[in-house]
Structure formats: C-alpha cells, structure tokens
Amino acid sequence: MSYLSKAFLVAAALSLAACSGAGRFDDTSAGAAGYAGTAQDPSSPLYFQQTVGDRVLFTVDQSNLTREAMAILDGQAQWLMQNAGFNVVIEGHADEQGTREYNLALGARRANAVREYLVSKGVAASRLDTVSYGKERPLEICSEEACYAKNRRAVTVVSAGGLS
C-alpha cells in the first residue's frame, strides 16, 4: 500500500484533470483546492483516504467486488453517511492490457459497481458521480502484474463541496 505514504490532498476530479504540471496522477497536491483536514480528524477527507480507505482493487477484466472490496466500501458508506457535506467522484481505472476503448468502458463498469454498492448501503445517489479513466492514469508504471493489480482500481475521491 505504498500510495498511503505519499502526501495527499483531496481534490475534485475536475481540478485533477485540469492539473497541467508534471506531477504524478496520484499526487493531487498541485491542483488541490479542497479542504483536506488532518488524518487525526475523523471527519476529514484525509482520514477517509488514509484510514477508511479510498480505493478498491479488481481482478483482471472484472468489475465485481471482492469480499475485501466490500469491507472497504462498507467503511466508505458509513463515513459518507456521517459526513453528509461531502460529495464524491468515483474514478474507475484499468491496467494497460487491453485497448484504450475497452478499458474506458471497463473502468466505467468498475466505478459503477462501487457507486451501486454505496447506494445499496444508503448513500444518496445524488452525491455520487462516476468517471472512467481507462488505462490513461496508471499509478504504478511497471509492465508486470504487481503494478497491474494496483492500477485495476476504483478510487472514491471526496470533495469538500459545502465546506470549502
């Protein structure tokens, strides 16, 4: 879980996409405009990201949720219910195996699987947006399964909508 060690700020997908610097795709600090708070504050996005867990991983070509993924999403749903001021963009991603077009559609399936699960746990659908990046935003760059496994992901990005 090396991504947890990196300095994170939480930004909406929009500011992430608008970031024109050369920063890594998971390093959103360059474009962050939102409120992140501290990891000690249980109502902060940073706490959500680091302690609740902001992402779930998928097996090759699949968009169904593993038992492990569901446990993380249970925590996300609970946090979102307790922190009603935050909205969410769920980003779906794929590894580099597969064509660009297919991976875009696959990432959308993954983001939607997370969305539907959160809705089933009581999070208002109106708070949940989804976007797919396909294979365009890898976190890990080696061409091996160790990297692919971390890139096949759906990341729940909370934005401090009403609180900023």
């Binding site: 077009e101 875009l104 559609a105 959308a108 939607n112 539907e116 797919s132």
Partner: peptide
Amino acid sequence: GSMSFSPRFAPDGRTVVYSLTQGGNT
C-alpha cells in the same frame, strides 16, 4: 451522468456513431 467516447463519422460526414456509457453500461 454519462460519458461518451470512441466516435467515428459515417461516410456521409453527417452522422457520428459512438459509445455512450450510462449506469456503467456502454
């Protein structure tokens, strides 16, 4: 609430065929 991608023109240049994703289905 949708995303659209993979467009291509028809030979007449007036129509576009493409993928539209709604609710995770493309």
